[in-house]
Computed example of a mutant assay.
Amino acid sequence: MNTATQVSPTTRAAAISASGLRKSYGDKVVLDGIDLRIPEGTIFALLGPNGAGKTTTVEILSTLITADSGQARIAGHDVTSDADSVRRRIGVTGQFAAVDGLLTAEENLLLMADLHHLSKREGRRRAAELLERFELTEAARKNVATFSGGMRRKLDLAMTLVGRPRIIFLDEPTTGLDPRSRRVMWELIRNLVTDQGVTIFLTTQYLDEADQLADRIAVLDHGKLVAEGTADELKRTIPGGHVRLRFADEAHLATAAGFFGTAARDDESLTLRIPGDGTLADLRAVLDVLDSTGIQAESLTVHTPDLDDVFLTLTGRQNAPTHPNPQKESAR
């Protein structure tokens, strides 16, 4: 999570705002009236299963498509009536790397510089700067078709930065990457915010990614925002936190159960599950009982709800797309 910012996000101007955004395709409602306010210099993550409306939201906010109704403003400019001003201030990185495999990394960046009407001198300077920042200098003149997935995603993000956008939309930026490449991308994303004050709008299905990066998170399901807050705020809304005690034998388990009346007892595993919210006060209360009664527990573990629990509870999905096995990831 971005912790380097000094000014409270609630006091900053809105980089992105939206009110009542709706979008349908025929009888299918994709967005059903969503409201957003994302302060400057923060990372906002939009979570949701496939088909929830994440990509449609990005397409509307980045002027690629128009909403059926509602309003949205980017850096103070209306996405419909002042789309050109919006486009000058944003960068968009889609689910799949939009790089030309027939060109070198440097040529891809120079092509983007031409599209931004930079002079040849400024374009080369900007390309060299981005190649160095993304640790692609040694591969600058290699054909992109030979790049790994992680290198292609880094180059894709570098190309987005050629025009120095103040707001960047990242639509599932780490899909298909191995764990090391994902963490490299996370660090690059963090640095854009902490070093340059860029605002990031991130869509992802990876709950650990949102937990690691986002200042605020919203959960989108069936076209509606069903929750919004910090990761900790969302976790606190979900029941299920507990302290789990394991004992050496049934005698110790039975004795402890007599002192923890609300605990769930499991004779097979010799454990007690004591409800709580995972706070230090809860843990201290359990330890105080053990200490005052002399009851010996073999082990103690604390469980607090995580974003997996939040996703499952809020969307009602049986299988949350969390912490995927990188070996089984595939681009959609």
Rank of each mutant, 00 (worst) to 15 (best):
residue 273 R to P: 01
residue 282 D to P: 11
residue 260 F to Y: 02
residue 304 T to I: 11
residue 86 V to M: 06
residue 117 H to I: 01
residue 57 T to F: 09
residue 83 A to V: 10
residue 224 K to C: 09
residue 69 S to P: 00
residue 118 L to W: 06
residue 226 V to K: 06
residue 170 L to N: 07
residue 107 E to W: 09
residue 167 I to T: 13
residue 200 I to V: 15
residue 265 R to K: 13
residue 102 L to M: 13
residue 154 K to H: 01
residue 83 A to Q: 10
residue 185 M to T: 01
residue 253 L to Y: 00
residue 117 H to T: 03
residue 302 V to I: 15
residue 185 M to N: 02
residue 173 P to G: 11
residue 2 N to Q: 12
residue 158 A to Y: 10
residue 263 A to S: 07
residue 106 E to R: 15
residue 201 F to R: 06
residue 1 M to S: 11
residue 27 D to N: 10
residue 269 S to I: 04
residue 184 V to R: 03
residue 212 Q to R: 15
residue 260 F to R: 02
residue 97 A to K: 01
residue 83 A to Y: 09
residue 309 D to E: 00
residue 218 A to R: 07
residue 145 A to C: 01
residue 280 L to I: 14
residue 101 G to M: 11
residue 298 E to K: 03
residue 158 A to S: 10
residue 317 R to N: 10
residue 208 D to S: 12
residue 46 L to S: 08
residue 241 G to S: 00
residue 283 L to T: 12
residue 279 T to N: 07
residue 145 A to L: 03
residue 25 Y to K: 05
residue 330 S to K: 11
residue 239 P to F: 12
residue 277 D to R: 14
residue 3 T to V: 11
residue 263 A to T: 04
residue 93 T to W: 00
residue 67 A to I: 08
residue 21 L to Y: 04
residue 6 Q to F: 03
residue 158 A to F: 10
residue 83 A to C: 10
residue 140 A to G: 14
residue 235 K to T: 03
residue 221 D to V: 00
residue 136 L to M: 15
residue 44 F to M: 08
residue 95 Q to Y: 08
residue 298 E to T: 12
residue 241 G to P: 01
residue 84 D to V: 14
residue 24 S to Q: 04
residue 71 Q to T: 15
residue 11 T to G: 00
residue 305 P to M: 12
residue 30 V to W: 03
residue 245 L to D: 06
residue 297 A to E: 07
residue 215 D to S: 15
residue 262 T to W: 01
residue 234 L to K: 10
residue 42 T to C: 07
